[in-house]
């Protein structure tokens, strides 16, 4: 009975979606006219922000306030997870069985390489695909690997919390500096530099480094909480 109701509901929703999509042919050039936002971003972003990657320019400058709200949501989710899993007295479970020698050596060998990859990706966010979010997630997955694989590795929560708060403050301070330099929150007030080189695009690399560190620390803390706090 329950699944029958579900199927009828799904048929209605699917029909509605199909009707909506029939108005929107796949692959049509829907940003052909000049007043569309996508057209403006594509044409003006290289001059206005100096960033070769237009998606980065949209995420960090045009929609930078949205991104600030997004890292706030991430922060709130991490706090919520810590609160839900909080328990006052720490009960020591039985220690996990250590991994085999080959696995431990492999994890400890791969860990710095994964960190370097993550840092590379968020440093080059304005030139190549990638950026703060992707690099931060790769850093976090490197820490996850080390946490599971290397037996003697302990995650020091205090350090991650400090990194995260510093990076979050750096984001807000960079935005405020734009306000102080005359203009608006998150205005790109620094020199743009040579297009398509590492030192270009003004405050975009700085903000993306801050986002990368914040996302990496946040997700590492989230996973460590999930691994340690729950019994």
């Amino acid at each position: 009975m329950r699944s029958l109701i579900a199927v009828i509901l799904l048929a209605v929703i699917g029909l509605g979606l199909a009707l909506c999509l029939s108005d929107m042919p796949f692959g049509a050039n829907h940003i052909a006219t000049a007043e569309k936002a996508g057209r403006h971003y594509l044409e003006k972003a290289p001059q206005e922000t100096g960033s070769a990657n237009v998606v980065t320019a949209v995420v960090v400058t045009y929609r930078g306030f949205d991104t600030l709200g997004e890292v706030t949501v991430l922060f709130i989710a991490a706090i919520g997870l810590g609160m839900v899993l909080y328990r006052r007295k720490k009960q020591e479970g039985k220690p996990p069985q250590p991994a085999s020698f080959v696995l431990q050596t492999g994890c400890c060998f791969l860990f710095p390489l994964i960190l370097i990859l993550g840092v590379y990706i968020f440093l080059h966010g304005h030139l190549t695909p990638g950026g703060g979010f992707q690099g931060g997630v790769i850093v976090a997955s490197g820490f996850l690997l080390a946490y599971i694989g290397c037996a003697d590795m302990k995650i020091r929560h205090r350090w991650f919390e400090a990194t995260e708060s510093l990076a979050g403050s750096a984001f807000v301070i960079a935005g405020m500096a734009g306000l102080a330099a005359g203009g608006s929150f998150l205005m790109n007030f620094m020199p743009k530099g040579n297009f398509n080189t590492l030192f270009s695009a003004g405050i975009i690399p700085i903000i993306y480094i801050a986002i990368g560190l914040k996302v990496g620390a946040e997700l590492t803390g989230l996973i460590a909480n999930l691994l340690e706090r729950a019994e």
């Binding site: 829907h30 940003i31 936002a37 996508g38 971003y41 594509l42 237009v54 998606v55 949209v58 995420v59 929609r63 949205d66 991104t67 997004e70 949501v73 991430l74 989710a77 991490a78 919520g80 997870l81 839900v84 899993l85 950026g131 979010f133 997630v137 996302v215 997700l219 989230l222 996973i223 909480n225 999930l226 729950a230």
Partner: peptide, 28 residues
């Protein structure tokens, strides 16, 4: 069009945080 790509990029990262919160509630 770069606009939906920027939207989806942030949506994916929020998604993983929401999933982790939901799973922690399930564990509790």
């Amino acid at each position: 069009d770069p606009t939906p790509q920027a939207l989806v990029l942030t949506a994916i990262v929020i998604g993983v945080a929401v999933l982790a919160l939901a799973l922690s509630l399930a564990v509790r």
